[in-house]
């Protein structure tokens, strides 16, 4: 398997109030960061259904990020806690399916933390790049070929 020229495809579910705004801030502050993150805005990180994560991996994502408000700061009180619980359980489940837990990430980015968002994106991208593509669809066939 070759990892050259591999550009990770990352999907990020950002909560509107904190993380999305934080990402927005990174943008308006002209912060440079890897373009691999594709953002889907939800109202709250608690909206993120595990099905979304699975769908994302199924469609070809190499890594999925859920980002929400810091614990205690959730605009909707407790949504981020639910996201946290789901993340932990889902990680274990994904591992069973052969998806490394490093590919599924949970971060807290507040509305003021543009820099953090930049850091998260860059770090996540590098990490997945080093790990290589997930290749969920047709991955076996490729191996079989090789």
């Amino acid at each position: 398997m070759t990892h050259e020229n591999f550009e990770p495809k990352l999907v990020g579910f950002l909560c509107t109030w904190c993380s999305y705004t934080g990402a927005d801030l990174a943008g308006t502050a002209r912060m440079d960061y890897a373009p691999n993150m594709r953002v889907i805005r939800v109202m709250c990180s608690g909206r993120v259904d595990p099905q979304f994560v699975l769908k994302a991996f199924k469609e070809g994502a190499d890594g999925v990020l859920i980002s929400g408000c810091h614990p205690g700061d959730c605009h909707y009180q407790e949504g981020n806690y639910k996201a946290l619980r789901r993340h932990r359980l889902l990680s274990k489940l994904l591992e069973q399916l052969g998806i490394e837990k490093e590919r599924f990430r949970l971060e807290w980015v507040s509305a003021a933390e543009g820099a953090k968002f930049q850091k998260v994106c860059n770090e996540f991208t590098e990490e997945i790049r080093n790990m290589g593509p997930l290749n969920l669809n047709g991955g076996i066939h490729e191996q079989a070929k090789a």
Binding site: M43, C44, G46, R47, D49, P50, K82
Partner: peptide, 8 residues
């Protein structure tokens, strides 16, 4: 408030 927790 539309947080979506119940939905998921």
């Amino acid at each position: 408030k539309g947080c979506g927790t119940c939905v998921s």
